[in-house]
């Protein structure tokens, strides 16, 4: 019995310790954000890596999410003759929920994992120590540009994902299932508010912060050679995905 409590206690302590370290890294990144020199080139490179290079996969998943949403809601709504609401449902779901979440999960898999692997490799090959020895803050050099890129690029990717999702819904709803085109679009105007879009984008920015911060954190505290890098990469994807879904609920409860 005592062992069980000790085990539970240890788990809680290590969880708290992990969250504490994550938060401290975040605070340090905020402090370094406002200290010169500002590393514009690194920042632009990260914008490209996190944003531009994720574009294809985000558009593809956005499109298919919108398409399947239209298909599913059509069959359900047909039961009570509300097919005309398919467009509004797709648009609402995409802007409020699926656009930001699917985008964040895809970017986590693509860029978040790569961030953890890259920084983790730098840690185990002493490149981070080399930065420190050269009197350069690794947080400023490595963490700040990545977090900033995540916070800026995720909302932009989400807008595009929302758009192609709705287009996908239109294609399936109007062109394949035969819903009236005017009705489909009209209902979107009727039910979807600009605030829905904005709130979705605020969520996306949060998710961008979470996935880059977790990637940096896991990479930064990597130990133990190639195996350690592999572990941090996996852990960063799992932790970031879990946190994204948890924060999604919290932010939704607060905003809508």
């Amino acid at each position: 019995m005592f062992k069980l409590f000790a085990w539970l206690g240890n788990i809680c302590l290590s969880l708290l310790q992990e969250m504490g370290k994550l938060l401290l890294l975040f605070l340090e990144a905020i402090i370094w954000l406002f200290r010169p020199p500002f590393r514009f080139r690194l920042f632009v490179k990260q914008l490209e890596f996190v944003g531009v290079n994720s574009l294809f996969v985000v558009l593809l998943t956005g499109l298919f999410t919108g398409m399947v949403l239209a298909l599913q809601t059509y069959y359900a709504f047909r039961l009570f003759s509300a097919e005309s609401l398919v467009g509004a449902t797709v648009a609402l779901s995409m802007t409020r929920e699926l656009g930001p979440v699917i985008t964040a999960l895809m970017v986590t898999g693509r860029a978040g994992s790569a961030i953890a692997a890259e920084i983790g490799t730098m840690r185990v090959t002493e490149q981070i120590d080399a930065l420190t020895v050269m009197a350069i803050s690794p947080v400023q050099y490595l963490v700040v540009p990545r977090i900033l890129a995540g916070v800026i690029m995720l909302p932009l990717l989400t807008i595009l994902s929302d758009f192609v999702g709705i287009v996908g819904g239109y294609l399936v709803g109007v062109k394949i299932l035969g819903i009236n085109s005017g009705l489909f679009i009209n209902k979107i105007y009727e039910h979807v508010d600009v605030d829905d879009l904005y709130n979705g984008l605020i969520k996306a920015a949060f998710f961008g912060l979470i996935l880059t911060l977790v990637g940096c954190y896991k990479g930064f505290y990597t130990r133990g050679g190639a195996e350690g890098v592999g572990k941090s990469t996996t852990q960063s994807v799992v932790l970031a995905s879990v946190l994204i879904l948890m924060f999604d609920y919290v932010l939704t409860a607060l905003m809508f």
């Binding site: 090959t125 002493e126 490149q127 020895v133």
Partner: peptide, 19 residues
């Protein structure tokens, strides 16, 4: 420490080059 470290140069075991 950053100010102190400017006095130093260090060669790491595996070079620790930025790849």
């Amino acid at each position: 420490l950053a100010n102190i470290r400017r006095k130093f140069g260090m060669l790491f075991q595996e070079g620790a080059l930025f790849d």
